[in-house]
């Protein structure tokens, strides 16, 4: 029994950064902008949080620093992909490269090494209980906003029928700009949970594909908040089980592959229909 609780607890821990990033991705993609830069956003967020917490001695300030870094990165990405109509895959790839290069660059300037930031004492770390509560609150908030508020309606229209929104006198591009910036802040906070919540510092290669995993969860959840949360928890559970059963009957590497293989099957429409927002990636 305690074993079961242990597994559930560890899955929840593992899932919490993914939840932030997946909700951030949801805001971007539901407004019609492809966001493959979640990985880079988690990297800058993780680093900014560690720096912020170190400088101020407060985890909350670290989280705020991550959100701020996300806003800055999100703004650049939004300018490129929405205003200057850059191809969103290309711009997102560029943002990922930028994050991967810029973080060690800044780390070298600030701390004389490119590996790990100085370690935070326990009381300056973000309690993961708080991180989980916050993550669940954000899911509820995003789900509610998308479904029942005017802003949510605009975001959905920007992603599905931008022309209709335009004729209602609201600029789809402005909606997208703001959605992308807000979503990027959330995704960067996911990186913060990783660095100052689940660990005590930001270290190189810490994100290790989690941004892409969050994107995967978003798609597995068919671009909806609660199902995406379910996917994050499922992926967290899969990873939690791997850690428990390192020497199990199924090789670890094949277990790791499972979330991606399942998503591929869902994406191919073999299990229901995964329909992306209609105007996703379009420049209109």
């Amino acid at each position: 029994m305690s074993d079961l609780i242990g597994i559930l607890e560890s899955s929840l821990r593992i899932a919490s950064p993914l939840i932030f990033a997946a909700m951030g991705g949801l805001l971007c993609e539901r407004s019609g902008v492809i966001q493959i830069g979640l990985e880079g956003l988690m990297i800058v967020g993780g680093f900014a949080a560690a720096v912020g917490a170190l400088q101020t001695g407060s985890a909350a300030a670290g989280l705020a620093a991550a959100a701020l870094a996300g806003v800055v990165f999100g703004y650049v990405y939004a300018e490129l992909s929405v205003r200057f109509r850059a191809n969103q895959i290309v711009a997102g790839t560029g943002m990922n490269f930028l994050a991967m290069g810029l973080v060690p660059f800044l780390s070298k300037v600030l701390y004389e090494n490119t590996g790990t930031t100085p370690s935070l004492p326990l009381e300056q770390r973000l309690s993961w209980h708080w991180a989980v509560v916050l993550a669940l609150g954000i899911v509820a908030g995003v789900a509610w906003m998308i479904r029942s508020t005017p802003v949510g309606l605009w975001i959905r229209f920007a992603g599905e029928h931008p022309a209709a929104l335009e004729s209602a006198g609201i600029s789809p591009r402005r909606v997208r700009m703001r959605s992308v910036i807000a979503g990027s802040a959330l995704a960067a906070m996911g990186g913060a949970v990783l660095s100052i919540g689940l660990a005590s510092a930001y270290s190189r290669n810490m994100v290790a594909g989690r941004g892409f995993m969050a994107l995967t969860a978003l798609i597995f959840g068919k671009w909806r908040a609660w199902p995406a949360l379910g996917a994050c928890l499922l992926f967290g559970l899969a990873e939690g089980l791997q850690v428990r059963f390192q020497s199990g009957a199924i090789p670890v590497q094949l277990m790791q592959v499972l979330p991606y293989a399942l998503t591929l099957v869902v994406l191919a429409g073999f299990v229901g229909r995964a329909r992306a927002p209609q105007a996703l990636g379009r420049q209109d």
């Binding site: 109509r85 711009a91 490119t114």
Partner: peptide, 18 residues
């Protein structure tokens, strides 16, 4: 790591056709 930064900037510059 500067290579990654320069790559990103080149991509950004190519991408921003607008």
């Amino acid at each position: 790591d500067l290579a990654l930064v320069i790559q990103a900037l080149i991509i950004g510059a190519v991408a921003a056709e607008g």
